[in-house]
Amino acid sequence: MTQPFNGSLLRPDFVPGEPVERHFSDVELVWTDDEQKQIATFRSQYPTNDGAVMKVLWLAQNKFSWLPPEVVQFVADTIEVPYAKVYGVATFYTQYYKEKKGTYVLDVCTCFGCQVCGGYDILHYLEDKLGISKGETTADGLFTIQEVECLGACGSAPMLQVTNGPYVHNLTKEKVDALIDDLKEGKMPAFESVTLPQDETDLGGNRRSDTELVTEYQTPPVSETLH
């Protein structure tokens, strides 16, 4: 299956040297005393400031809810790392939001493992259901769909992650319906641990002891398009 041609890839998000739209004023771009202390701790954890880039970006995203250029630059200036470098890091990870997102960001995995088990089936079902394409946000501002690469839960493919938080495993269309209904009511899915076949013998069934919800490993489905 070929990807639809994405025209926007042909244009960079900005033209070098041209001013970019701002979303936060200088008055808003300040750290509280607590945050400053945290940043100082992050910096002390690494031999060079480069090491603290990711943690401070994360802090900024939690504070401002997303990372427009002026926030990235604010982070860069704070920890004295070149702006371009911090921007490079911010754009590398889908978990850092470079655009304003909906309340719930649904990161649907279509990487190899999930792909053969129906990752695209789930993605397309979700797109149809919410009436938006990947990368877009619903008009009510509630949901954003993102297509992401492997989230490291291939054993329970297909799967998705909600707003950089809990994973939803072993997805089916019914499970997607239930998830959307819950989220509309403001109910986030609970953290769920899925066992792996080898856990049964080696670890007495579960490698995590810190969670209530333990699901036993099940053989993943095969993508509809592969039948």
């Binding site: 890839l9 960079p12 900005f14 041209e18 371009a84 470098k85 490079g88």
Partner: peptide, 23 residues
């Protein structure tokens, strides 16, 4: 320090930071 690789995987490329120019 004006250039950095942005993005990831098969869609990444070198670029300036937004608003900055490679002068």
């Amino acid at each position: 320090h004006q250039l950095s690789i942005i993005g990831r995987g098969d869609t990444n490329y070198p670029m300036t930071a937004p608003g900055q120019v490679f002068d």
